[in-house]
Design a protein around this nucleic acid. Sequence first.
DNA 1: GATGATTTGTACGTATGTATT
DNA 2: GAATACATACGTACAAATCAT
Lengths: 242, 242
Amino acid sequence: MAARYEQIAAELRDEILTGVHPVGSQLPSEAELAARYSAARGTVRQAVGILAAEGLVGSRQGARRIVLGGERSQSFAELHSFAQWARSQGHVVGGEVLGQRRRKAGPAESAKLGTAEVLEVLRLRTLEGEPVLLERTVYASWIAPAVEGLPRDCESVTQALYDGVGLVFAYGEHLIDAVSASSEDARLLGVRRGSPLLRQRRITTTQEGRPVEWSDDRYRAGSVAFSIRNSIGANPLARLAL
Amino acid sequence: MAARYEQIAAELRDEILTGVHPVGSQLPSEAELAARYSAARGTVRQAVGILAAEGLVGSRQGARRIVLGGERSQSFAELHSFAQWARSQGHVVGGEVLGQRRRKAGPAESAKLGTAEVLEVLRLRTLEGEPVLLERTVYASWIAPAVEGLPRDCESVTQALYDGVGLVFAYGEHLIDAVSASSEDARLLGVRRGSPLLRQRRITTTQEGRPVEWSDDRYRAGSVAFSIRNSIGANPLARLAL
DNA sequence: GATGATTTGTACGTATGTATT
DNA sequence: GAATACATACGTACAAATCAT
């Protein structure tokens, strides 16, 4: 069961997002909230402290808290699953496997994934039918059979692996930078060679720290951006379609 | 004067960084610390809460706190201050103001910053003498005088504004994507026109939610990447030089 | 502008729940 | 199971900043 202050934070967050407390308005005072929830002032302070760390409300000594900002992002799953993110944003997501083969792991791959053999997959993902993302993913050999068993147009690989073999991604490292489109990139994404792409390289592991995949994802410029909201307390991050 | 819990946090942080509490060791219990500093347990909890948010110590219910990291992960400051990040990584950072003028705010700027007039600043930043970043920043009018008073080659604007007028950045939103270099971008960064740049657009606010600046930062491809490590709980993020 | 009420920030102390050792 | 230690929650008091009169 969630702690009392978490419940209060959740209720207030919901009230903010549903417009009960519009952006720019004042939040009820700590005393009022304490009375409303039959809680001590300290408990209410813990709750609003969460919202402040999320950047949802601002705090100034002596003045009532002000509602600052709009929506909040559910950072983790979003960054690992293109399909889950896209669907939650109301986009029509598509995709297809363009190539798939087993091969020996290179030294760098072997070090990252801890296996001697890997499964290399090339996928093209679309939003509203437009190609936006080219994924070059290398899977560890122990998960390869499950991946090979997926349909070529599987929408959400993350979801399918969870449903199929109960695999849960729990941790990831991401590197985000910009690169020029190679000839192959350009042809598949429908852009000119040398045009800018947003690249996300990521390695994903299970809860126990076992590496699952290593991927080089390239987004067509102007299609997707990464959104990060950070305060001193917390760092939500998310994808964003342009 | 700093609050008592901030003093305690500072002392503990110093003891950790100087090796009094080595990495992997246990921190004294809350009760011990309360006795040592003649403070209430709640005050000690506020102090160690800061260290936990910084990633310096870990917390588990029932177990003593463990000292985690050597260095402080200041993921927040890092993403807002190029100079603070670069220096913490041992880079030689330089920079210069190329242009600066006051002008009327456009509708989008006015909505973002909440002022009718803005101060527009164009800065070129270097690492080891090489130009890597072009900053186009728009400041709210109330902070403009302080910014205009800075030297043209000021290394850390964030630091200077803190020292000068006590301004603390507390919250930010960032959009990261890739764009083609414009003619001006290309000339100033020393790359070909149309070559890929990593763009970071950010808006920064004070603790009270008052907008301070809106910036369009463009990094030369291959010079800097954004690094994100995310688990289900926390999302530290940082810049990374390539 | 000054005063007093309001509101948040800091600090104390106590009690109980829950996970670890 | 017992002892320890962190997590949650309550209540009180005063300081500091803000706001309304």
